[in-house]
Design a protein around this nucleic acid. Structure first.
Length: 759
DNA sequence: CCGAGTACTTAGGACCCGCCGT
DNA sequence: ACGGCGGGTCCTAAGTACTCGG
């Protein structure tokens, strides 16, 4: 019995305890009018109060150029103007700060003619070594709250035991969260239902129960379908809306975001990442998560801690509210934070991926991985030796590092009972590893995000022996394979080789190393498309190494089936053509029996099935055409097509059907006048051959790729400089490999390497 | 030294939107 | 013009690792 099975039930007590404890933190929601907060753009409205050295220059600019300085856009304008790239990139950081103001000012005057929109980016990577994370000045506008709950229209209700229920808005909101998921996997998951229902009842109780005296006791008697349907209608309406109105809505949204989207870090404009506070919802835990479905409560300004410069203006909280706390901690990268109620852990608002801070961390990460290059040999030598160590702990360390190094396992920290049962290296258990002499190991476990890790591999002989030892009785299923180990012990050991070396560095190192090796194998020839294919193949190798998967999309099975059928149909067509040839000249079969052999592969059942599908498809085609045509005519106030017209079309299909039936009966194919010679038929067959070929390859590619996610390794593991070098060397435009946001994230890489750079 | 607490990276799925074939 | 599809972005869950206080 696994831990998950043992723990999944009988959680009633702990769960309800959590709920009631959390309840003390619940705040009453302020009436709507009150909460119509207008967060002022403190950055632009109070620029004069800024005392920060790095900002002083802005004042001058403004004095110089801007008289209506309370404009909302002041900040962006100012920042754009001063964003001029410093040509004097050798300025030492230490003295930079003091001189910055002067320098900037001087340059400001000199560079006024530079294009305004080139602005942006501070090229930190051109300034020698990266400074330690943290900031000297941080100014921002706080966070954006989700809209208040809007009650459902009065005719949309939850039904209990077939009776409409009057819910207080607070409870209705929660019911709505569930209703929205009614038809999803979450909605159908019993654990999710149970957790949701507990919390729902709790909220209901807190708010005085139902308003019409109905007492809700059993989940099974709840009918959420009315609410669900209503949401579906809303979705439809939103989709239909599709005019330019959609664009207007988007613009409005963007305008609201505007002030939160940017902040000022060390005097420079930078993008904020997740400035939207997470809206309340049901927690969607992955895998067999014991807490999935629990209510994630609304976050209020009072829950939020802001982090900014001491002298930065404090953003206005929503009307009638106060911030939880204001902090000035320059050693952390977050702008705001709050505690969530599911695990009592923190959520952070941080800078966007394209920010200097993130870029610097990224560069550091890859440089650390590269540093491992010069230690990896001795590390490998050592762990190979330690595989035979007399000290158990040493052996376990050695095997663990081996697994992390060779199979790219994660460290595998300890997890608590109220999380999904997933493991990494150190937390592997007896049952996750099967040993098959002489040296085959089968890994089968759930890793991060409950993604299955399944591999049958050959391992080092001594590793195999050690694993046998680690599994020796009295150990049994449920027991830790590495009972003396945890990530911190492992990491401590690793640091003795190299400062900052931890288990996760191996993943980065091996991913990038693999990519480099794979790219080295690609010949510099062929079209850009071919090169891209090869790049993606290399990328895929890495993704497979890291076990980056994606679930096949809902339509995948169907679309594969469809593609398969299309191929089948093409083959049928080919056979039909071949039959046609034989009808013209029977003797040809003897001359080339192989060519005609596939005719016998086609069974009557197959044939009938294909016929039916084609008929069905044709019918649908005309039905759709009819509906569409009439929709159009209705819209344009024209006369509608009569049913008669449709029937005429369908007649044609009937004819085809008869033709097929005849074909089945007699085995004779009626030749089309355009296809009535052996030559013409053969040519047609050739064309079909090609189509079948390409369709098959495409399908295979699709299937192979359907479960592999290339993105994660591209974003997190493959040193972007590898891709940049590849593009430069092979004449592939970088846009083919990095999307716009990736190009922004990796500007430091794109602008800093030449084609000789190697990982 | 350890565990709780904190801060940061890594991850897959939802969702949206533009493109393509019809 | 339209709907299905797939790429790109958004969202937030789920990891790793470090720190700090007893």
């Amino acid at each position: 019995m696994t831990r998950a099975e043992m723990s999944s039930d009988d959680e009633d007590t702990p769960l309800s305890q959590t709920i009631s404890r959390k309840n003390q933190r619940v705040r009453k929601i302020v009436p709507e009018e009150d909460s119509d907060y207008d967060s002022d753009d403190v950055l632009s409205k109070q620029p004069k109060k800024k005392k920060t050295k790095t900002l002083s220059k802005e004042k001058k600019i403004k004095v110089k150029s801007d008289s209506d300085d309370d404009d909302d856009e002041v900040m962006s304008k100012k920042l754009e103007k001063k964003k001029k790239k410093k040509k004097t990139k050798t300025i030492k950081k230490s003295i930079k700060k003091e001189k910055e103001t002067e320098n900037d000012l001087k340059e400001e005057e000199n560079n006024d003619d530079e294009e305004e929109d080139k602005e942006e980016s501070y090229k930190w990577w051109e300034e020698g070594d990266v400074k330690d994370n943290g900031w000297t000045s941080l100014v921002h506008n706080g966070v954006m709250f989700p809209p208040e709950y809007e009650p459902l229209p009065s005719h949309i209700k939850l039904y209990y035991d077939n009776q409409p229920v009057e819910l207080p808005p607070e409870a209705e909101e929660v019911a709505g969260f569930y209703a929205a998921l009614l038809e999803t996997d979450h909605g159908k998951n019993p654990v999710f239902q149970k957790n949701f229902f507990n919390d729902f009842l709790q909220i209901l109780k807190e708010n005085g129960g139902t308003l019409n005296g109905i007492e809700i006791k059993s989940f099974d008697k709840c009918d959420f379908s009315k609410i669900y349907n209503y949401f579906e209608v809303l979705k439809e309406e939103k989709k239909k809306l599709s005019a330019q109105e959609k664009k207007e809505l988007r613009l409005e949204r963007q305008k609201e975001e505007e002030i939160y989207k940017f902040c000022e870090l060390n005097g420079r404009k930078e993008q904020v990442g997740n400035f939207r506070v997470e809206p309340p919802d049901l927690f969607r835990g992955r895998g067999k998560h014991p807490k999935t479905g629990k209510l994630k409560r609304r976050v209020h300004p009072e829950d939020i801690v802001l982090n900014l410069s001491k002298d930065a203006p404090i953003p206005k909280p929503p009307k009638g509210h106060k911030w939880g706390e204001i902090r000035h901690d320059p050693n952390v990268q977050w702008l705001a934070m709050w505690r969530e109620n599911i695990f009592n852990s923190f959520k952070y608002v941080r800078l966007a991926a394209n920010s200097s801070l993130k870029g610097q961390s990224d560069l550091k990460k890859f440089e650390k991985a590269r540093e491992l290059k010069s230690h990896i040999d001795s590390i490998r030598r050592d762990y190979k030796r330690s595989l035979k160590s007399k000290v158990m702990l040493e052996r376990q360390k050695a095997v663990a590092i081996y697994l992390i190094d060779v199979f790219a396992l994660r460290a595998g920290g300890e997890k608590s009972e109220d999380e999904a049962d997933t493991v990494g290296c150190c937390s592997l258990r007896y049952e996750h590893v099967t040993l098959q002499p002489p040296n085959i190991v089968i890994f089968d476990f759930l890793g991060k995000d409950s993604i299955r890790f399944y591999q049958e591999v050959e391992v080092d002989k001594q590793v195999f022996k050690d694993l046998i030892i680690f599994k020796r009785p009295p150990k049994q299923p449920g027991h830790q394979l590495f009972d003396r180990l945890d990530p911190s012990i492992l990491n401590k050991h690793l640091q003795s080789y190299m400062p900052g070396l931890t288990a996760k560095v191996f993943r980065t190192y091996n991913a990038s190393k693999t990519m480099q090796d794979q790219l080295d194998l690609i010949p510099n020839e062929g079209s850009v498309a071919e090169k891209l294919l090869r790049y993606n193949a290399a990328n895929r190798t890495v993704a497979i190494l890291c076990n980056h998967q994606r679930s096949v999309t809902k339509g995948h099975a169907q679309s594969v089936q469809k593609a398969n059928f299309r191929i089948k149909e093409l083959i049928w067509q080919r056979i039909r053509l071949k039959k046609s040839i034989l009808q013209l000249d029977k003797k040809l079969r003897k001359k080339n029996p192989k060519f005609y052999a596939e005719i016998d592969d086609l069974t009557k059942e197959d044939e009938i099935e294909i016929h039916e599908k084609i008929i069905e498809r044709e019918n649908e085609k005309y039905q759709r055409k009819f509906v569409r045509e009439n929709d159009k005519r209705k819209f344009e106030n024209e006369e509608l097509l009569e049913e008669k017209v449709l029937n005429e079309w369908l007649e044609k299909v009937e004819d085809l059907k008869k033709e097929f039936a005849e074909e089945i009966k007699t085995g004779e194919i009626v030749l089309k006048p355009t296809l009535n010679t052996v030559e013409k038929l053969e040519k047609q067959i050739e064309r079909l051959d090609l189509r079948i070929e390409t369709s098959s390859i495409q399908l295979k590619d699709k299937e192979e790729n359907s479960e592999v996610s290339l993105g994660t390794s591209k974003i997190n593991y493959i040193d972007p400089r590898l891709s940049v070098v590849f593009c430069k060397k092979f004449g592939v435009p970088i846009e083919k490999i990095f999307t716009k946001s990736l190009r922004e994230k990796f500007t430091w890489a794109i602008e800093s390497v030449d084609e000789n750079w190697r990982f």
